[in-house]
Design a protein around this nucleic acid. Structure first.
Lengths: 187, 187
DNA sequence: CTGTTACGCAACAATTTGTTGCATAGAGGC
DNA sequence: GCCTCTATGCAACAAATTGTTGCGTAACAG
């Protein structure tokens, strides 16, 4: 990744956040960075490539997987806290809606978000699997629905409903998920 | 609402679905409908107005509130089934991501989605309140988190994760929500 | 019949988009 | 030092798009 490319993509992310996908063009990025349009066209012949590279850059900005060593409640609090931070404080949280919208008409954008969500789902799924291995859950408990609930609600609140995500909310959310996990185990 | 306006907005919705917000302009709508650009500019001096009116039209397309008379499981199945249909088969499901993305930079779009989600949340909240009034839930059960879970997961699956929503999935989802409601009541 | 309203058409300037040819600066090999 | 290759900037250009305006006309209500 050359300096020119990173410079361009950083600017693209700023534009994406402030004005939307709509505003990310060779022209606007050139104006913001001082890079000439011809250079930008050489790097990204199509504007969708430029946008999608910016998407990928933002997706990477939201960080990696935390350590998991139990108990379930602690692991969930840590991972979902991580998700909250990503949504609240990294570029990803601010441009995710744009990626989602682009995914409706652009296969590359769809791939970006699919890769990203697969990672997140796998991370949380591993946490439940570890809890089951430790005997915190009944063997055979279907964890996939629990995983989706754990992740879906913060995304829904932040991106769709426009509701805040804070630590108090996180605590009660984790509480609910844990109770549901126990219930699923017992029922 | 004149014939010209509805005609224009219908075309705008088609373009929105097929090509994204990006593609909805006075020019593209004019080409699609045969309506002259000057007329479209008279109706919507700014392109955001045109887009937002299309958003509102789609939001209305997803229909109204169902009857609720218990038991909780039946009401949830009915309402969430309604939501599934809306997401799978009406314009709303197809353009909601675009509205969400637009909401990040456009106050009008934010209002459209806020109004829409408030309605949906209130509908499901009323179902839980009725269940509580019938004695199906412990008095004082905090229903808001349950409501958000009930709605968030289908939205997450459809819009964000790109996963399917079918009747089998709905049944297990309702099942989980109901068990959680009981658990919340008891615990 | 007359005034009003909504619409289409044509023309226009300004901007944006995509492309190209040419010049230059820097890195690395000989 | 000299050469070559690559990345970049600059300027110019055609084409398409955007936003605006003036004019003519058809429909409709009074």
């Amino acid at each position: 990744m050359t300096a020119t490319r990173t410079h361009a993509l950083d600017a693209a992310l700023d534009i994406l956040r402030d004005k939307g996908v709509l505003a990310v063009t060779h022209g606007s990025v050139g104006k913001a960075t001082g890079i000439s349009r011809s250079t930008l066209y050489r790097h990204w012949p199509e504007v969708s490539g430029l946008r999608n590279d910016a998407f990928r850059r933002a997706a990477r900005s939201s960080g990696g997987a935390p350590e998991t060593n139990g108990p379930l409640r602690a692991d969930l609090t840590w991972t979902l806290g991580f998700l909250l931070t990503a949504l609240n404080e990294t570029p990803w949280g601010q441009i995710a809606p744009q990626v989602i919208a682009a995914a409706a008409t652009d296969a590359d954008a769809r791939e970006v978000i699919n890769d990203f969500m697969s990672d997140r789902i796998a991370t949380v799924e591993a946490i439940f699997a570890a809890a089951e291995a430790r005997g915190e859950l009944q063997p055979g408990t279907p964890v996939r629905p629990l995983v989706e609930m754990a992740i879906a609600v913060p995304y829904f609140r932040k991106l769709i409903a426009g509701l805040p995500l804070d630590d108090d909310w996180l605590a009660s959310h984790v509480d609910l998920i844990c109770r549901l996990a126990e219930k699923s185990s017992q029922g």
